[in-house]
């Protein structure tokens, strides 16, 4: 089973929300769509789900063209940012509704619901209303609703953005295991690059409705094709030096080294982060961020140097990478 998008676009009025979307993901793949808010990543998901009409291009699931089909006919499992659980129904009834609509036998329904509740450790919550559940439990119910119909494709729209940071970290490995176990193409939308790197084996960086780069997380980090991608991935953010000759030189904070023959800098501020410390430096080339060992006592004035091989060069006008 594969999900295949060919030159997909959506246009409202005379404005393209997303355009030229093209990728293919297989059974064991999880693709993360990341980008700033309003970049079109959620729209992409809605197009695949069939919630919004496609203006050009085609979408195929397992070789079948589904471009013109309704969401119901596409065999999609989707988890929404707000979980979209019906507040007036219990967990059991929320899971049952979709099966009831599809005329699944009553006995069969109960078995399937019980199985998925067991899988997600929700068995003792079956008769609760969503409002009586914690955020993490609600998220699992939303996931259970997607799993129960055994769909061909999973779409997850910022499924963890409503959870607090600590809970998110706890749920991430569990969610990753569950999704990978299904052996189905999965798309994961998030604005959090860290989450994208943790969950997905491929990441597509989207901006202004276009995919800028689609690759494995490590390749994106090591080999960004544009300034936007370089700045989007990696925290603390990549250092951009003052442009010269229409070129921007960018260097990752961890690649900066102290060297008395290097660029003279002045310490602006420091953040102690536990296992590292982050230094903010001012220099004639612009402000720099630098990662250091936490025990290091930084002087007011210092000199930094970096290996030009590890720096990236971008065109100032287009933001494209210069090899």
């Amino acid at each position: 089973m594969t999900l295949h998008l060919q030159n997909v676009g959506r246009c409202i009025g005379n404005q393209w929300i997303v355009r030229h979307l093209a990728f293919q993901i297989g059974n064991d793949e999880c693709l993360a769509l990341v980008g700033p808010s309003g970049c079109g990543k959620s729209t992409t998901l809605r197009l695949i789900a069939g919630l919004d009409p496609v203006s050009e291009g085609s979408i195929a699931i397992g070789g079948h063209d589904v471009t013109k089909l309704t969401p119901a006919e596409r065999s999609i499992g989707m988890v929404f940012q707000s979980y979209a659980l019906l507040p007036h129904l219990s967990v059991f009834e929320n899971l049952e509704l979709g099966l009831k609509i599809r005329n699944v036998q009553c006995k069969d329904r109960s078995i399937r619901i019980q199985r998925v509740l067991d899988l997600l450790q929700l068995s003792d919550r079956a008769s609760h209303r969503p409002a009586q559940l914690s955020g993490g439990q609600r998220q699992r119910v939303a996931l259970a609703r997607a799993l129960i119909r055994d769909p061909e494709v999973y779409l997850l729209d910022e499924p963890m953005s409503n959870l607090d940071a600590q809970l998110r970290e706890g749920i991430r490995p569990e969610l990753r295991r569950l999704v990978l176990e299904q052996q189905k193409p999965t798309i994961y939308v998030t604005h959090d690059q860290h989450e994208a790197m943790a969950m997905a084996n491929k990441i597509a960086i989207i901006n202004h409705g276009q995919i800028l780069q689609l690759d494995t997380p490590i390749n994106l980090y090591k080999n960004p094709n544009s300034l936007f991608v370089a700045q989007f991935l990696g925290r603390p953010q990549i250092n951009c030096l003052k442009p010269s000759d229409n070129q921007i030189q960018a260097i990752r904070p961890e690649d900066l080294k102290f060297d008395d023959s290097g660029l003279p800098c002045r310490l602006l501020s420091r953040e102690w982060l536990g296992n590292t410390q982050l230094l903010y430096l001012a220099s004639s080339e612009g402000d720099l961020r630098m990662i250091m060992d936490p025990s290091f006592e930084c002087p007011e004035r210092l000199f930094v140097r970096w290996d030009p091989q590890k720096a990236f060069y971008f065109d100032r006008e287009t933001g494209k990478r210069i090899p």
Binding site: L51, T70, M78, A84
Partner: peptide
Amino acid sequence: ELEDAARVEGL
């Protein structure tokens, strides 16, 4: 999203 979820469910 509530109605979107229901559309995906096939209602």
